[in-house]
Amino acid sequence: MRIITWNINSLRLRLPLLRKLVEEETPDIICLQETKVHDDLFPQHALDDLGLPHYLYKGMKSYNGVAIFSRYPLELVDHFPEWCGKKDCRHLAVSIGTPDAPILLHNFYVPAGGDIPDPTENEKFAHKLNFLKETTNWFQKTPPTRSILVGDLNIAPLENDVWSHKQLLKIVSHTPVETESLNEWINTGFIDAMRQIIPASEKLYTWWSYRNKDWKKSNRGRRLDHIWISPDLKEKVQNITVLSHARDWETPSDHVPVMMDINPS
């Protein structure tokens, strides 16, 4: 089973890139974040020939939004809360049938948190911390089994997940309060699958700002996109690939796709 997670930063704008990704990598499942399209305007007609006939989505106008496309039938799992009491389309969970037992797949888009890393001065940052607290509390009560969690979690937790640990300690996405909160969430019963394959001693990024005219030369990246697995799937992971070349596509997202090959049987 090949699973790709990607913050596409507008589904309708980057439909050609989604098609390119499917043609190049032939995924079985794609999880998208920041689709930025209301459900009423979701471009179903433009996606019918992708070879991913099963899909679910949750979207709103101009902001946020998540979607899952699959070769396998999907069953919506909807017993999760509206995080922080907001209906802002940041989480989609599905059950996928396999020969052994179903896989529970979570697709998350965590709030970015604005620019000021102070919850008293910045409501967006307060929202981000509250979101992390609520998800952590929920998963503590229900430890994951046969579960995969992917998405743009908007936090680069490790020193080598950012281009400069010291310079970014006071920058939203790498502040201690955020990385500690993300660690509390993953410690509810997940494993960082990306760092299982690519050692924490190596630099690893999935996002490069649009502000850098030559993203490759400056290479000031961050690992904001993640794949987590429950421990019972640890030995099933075959490979993880960050498709960094996608940052050079025409009108790219500032995030690149992350791909996992896993044998869930």
Results as ranks from 00 to 15, higher is better:
residue 3 I to E: 00
residue 5 T to Y: 10
residue 9 N to M: 13
residue 9 N to K: 00
residue 10 S to K: 05
residue 10 S to D: 12
residue 10 S to T: 07
residue 13 L to M: 10
residue 16 P to M: 05
residue 19 R to E: 11
residue 21 L to I: 14
residue 24 E to G: 11
residue 27 P to S: 05
residue 27 P to Y: 12
residue 33 Q to K: 13
residue 36 K to A: 03
residue 37 V to T: 14
residue 39 D to E: 14
residue 42 F to D: 15
residue 46 A to I: 03
residue 48 D to L: 09
residue 48 D to F: 09
residue 49 D to C: 11
residue 49 D to W: 09
residue 52 L to C: 00
residue 56 L to H: 01
residue 56 L to T: 06
residue 65 G to Y: 08
residue 67 A to T: 02
residue 69 F to W: 00
residue 74 L to C: 04
residue 76 L to I: 07
residue 76 L to E: 00
residue 79 H to W: 14
residue 80 F to N: 00
residue 81 P to S: 13
residue 83 W to A: 09
residue 85 G to R: 13
residue 86 K to S: 15
residue 87 K to M: 12
residue 88 D to H: 15
residue 88 D to G: 11
residue 92 L to T: 09
residue 93 A to G: 15
residue 94 V to E: 00
residue 96 I to L: 07
residue 97 G to T: 12
residue 104 L to E: 05
residue 105 L to I: 07
residue 105 L to K: 01
residue 108 F to Q: 02
residue 112 A to P: 09
residue 114 G to Q: 12
residue 115 D to S: 06
residue 117 P to D: 01
residue 119 P to D: 03
residue 119 P to N: 03
residue 121 E to I: 04
residue 122 N to I: 01
residue 126 A to Y: 04
residue 128 K to M: 09
residue 129 L to Y: 06
residue 129 L to C: 06
residue 129 L to P: 04
residue 130 N to W: 14
residue 130 N to Y: 02
residue 131 F to K: 00
residue 133 K to I: 06
residue 136 T to E: 13
residue 137 N to E: 10
residue 140 Q to W: 10
residue 142 T to V: 13
residue 142 T to Q: 15
residue 142 T to F: 09
residue 144 P to E: 15
residue 145 T to C: 15
residue 149 L to C: 07
residue 150 V to Q: 00
residue 153 L to G: 01
residue 155 I to R: 02
residue 156 A to D: 04
residue 157 P to C: 04
residue 157 P to A: 14
residue 161 D to P: 13
residue 162 V to A: 08
residue 163 W to E: 05
residue 163 W to K: 10
residue 166 K to M: 04
residue 170 K to W: 11
residue 172 V to Y: 03
residue 177 V to S: 12
residue 178 E to G: 13
residue 179 T to P: 03
residue 181 S to A: 15
residue 185 W to G: 03
residue 188 T to R: 08
residue 189 G to K: 12
residue 192 D to L: 12
residue 195 R to N: 10
residue 197 I to E: 09
residue 197 I to Q: 06
residue 202 E to I: 08
residue 204 L to K: 00
residue 207 W to T: 04
residue 207 W to E: 07
residue 210 Y to W: 15
residue 211 R to V: 01
residue 211 R to K: 08
residue 221 G to H: 03
residue 229 I to E: 02
residue 233 L to Y: 03
residue 234 K to E: 10
residue 234 K to T: 08
residue 238 Q to I: 15
residue 239 N to V: 12
residue 242 V to F: 10
residue 242 V to M: 07
residue 242 V to L: 07
residue 244 S to M: 01
residue 251 T to R: 15
residue 252 P to Y: 04
residue 252 P to S: 03
residue 254 D to F: 08
residue 256 V to N: 02
residue 258 V to T: 07
residue 260 M to H: 02
residue 260 M to C: 05
residue 261 D to P: 11
residue 262 I to P: 03
residue 263 N to I: 13
